[in-house]
Design a protein around this nucleic acid. Sequence first.
DNA 1: CAAATACCTATGGTCCAACAATTGACCGCA
DNA 2: TGCGGTCAATTGTTGGACCATAGGTATTTG
Lengths: 266, 266
Amino acid sequence: MTTAKTTPSAPLAPPSMLDGLKRIKVPKSFDLLSEQLQAEIMSGNYPPGASLPTERELVAATGLSRGSVRESLRMLEAQGLLQTKAGRYGGSVVAAPTDALLNRHINVYAKGRSVPWTALVEVRQALEPTVAALAARNRSDDDLAELRRIAGRLDQAAANDVPAFLDENANWHAAIAAASRNDLLRALYSSVSGLMMEASQIKNFASEEIRQKVMLAHRRILDAIERRDEDAARRRTERDVQAYARYLEAVVQATGGFVDSSDLQR
Amino acid sequence: MTTAKTTPSAPLAPPSMLDGLKRIKVPKSFDLLSEQLQAEIMSGNYPPGASLPTERELVAATGLSRGSVRESLRMLEAQGLLQTKAGRYGGSVVAAPTDALLNRHINVYAKGRSVPWTALVEVRQALEPTVAALAARNRSDDDLAELRRIAGRLDQAAANDVPAFLDENANWHAAIAAASRNDLLRALYSSVSGLMMEASQIKNFASEEIRQKVMLAHRRILDAIERRDEDAARRRTERDVQAYARYLEAVVQATGGFVDSSDLQR
DNA sequence: CAAATACCTATGGTCCAACAATTGACCGCA
DNA sequence: TGCGGTCAATTGTTGGACCATAGGTATTTG
């Protein structure tokens, strides 16, 4: 090393060899393989249903050990990209990511970051009016029939059966989301909605009065969806969601505490 | 076996032993462990930063082999719940799920399911007005300064530097999302927004005229955010997003084709 | 001939043991 | 005090072996 390194009196600004260097991350073998496989799959060369090579073939192709190969496969499996079957003619098959998987990941994110309850309400506030509007636009007759059935069961349960009411309410939201005919929107909305429901149950949110209001609100929205009136569906949902948000705020004020998702943790 | 099994003339309705049985799914060891660890982490007993037992301790505690334990850890790592370091005093520590991870999962979902471009637009249409409104409500002075800087660079790039323009536009959206002070909303919006940007780039969407309109729209929204005018921010964003959607529809009509996310796949 | 049955075997699932690579802490020296 | 080397615990990776699973196929059976 030259003495210039530490002498402050160096005549020229010493061009350090360090300049061209950045943080070096040593990749792990299983990371490399899993990224490679993921790229391959997402490139479209392996559509859902396509079979991956067997573990032993991957071992031969990559030069890695079977353990490392398996760790890579587990990573893709955890992301919902793969599904693995044992036995002869088994193996790993490319899978279409499911709503349930995305739901889990959103759950992990929300709980892991302790996303406050208010934030969930805000996201719902953003999504639900559009969901309703799209449902009004794209619903099928079957969707409508299903919504009617759920609304009926909701009416029945509203009077005395709180658990059933909450359950049917969840079904209601899921059904509207399905009717919107937008996979991504449905998945996102269902996740957030489910997260909130969970919180509502814990907070014992379904008073008699609330249940009645929810019921009526659903009826009005159902009406708009039936008439395929997008604007009405959107406006009515906006109103309901805002009312809910205000009510929530009042409750938070009343209980004086800050309600966050840690309440969700059993 | 009794002969009654196949005789149709059995006097009584034969109460079959099969009645109480349902489909049995044999669990894999690594699935069991990973679920157990995930439950433990999400229960809050292990907040981000907490250390998990070492692999060999887990082996001792569970009776599984180290390979199975490692496969479990890889699954959690792929979900963003863990981060593992090698070396003495290394090991697995609980991590707070990052936006990047959720982004990846949403990408996997959208591309894996070939979510059409129009669906992305719809989700954006749902999220962006609320994002803008919340940004107007919750922005800090630093947020505002950052937005101003980006708007300035956007103006500069609009005339001739399309790549820089697209880049700064992405920054703009990210900055607004950050100013909304809602982690989940920010993560969801950034993901969807990024997905759309990618598509826009490929479709060569940034004509001179469009760039000018985008610039003006941003200026108007920036103004509303500066004045902390939630309603204005929401309304203006709604208008812009709708205009964008209509423009998109026109382009789709013109090209005559159906544009879906498979265009994103290289 | 048809149906039930018994193998057959390729594939993932699991375990074990060993060694390599990594990395923070510790210690000794100048 | 600061620097460098050593140490040791922990993950990373490999190889091999055997078990469990499950679809196909041949065989037996009626």
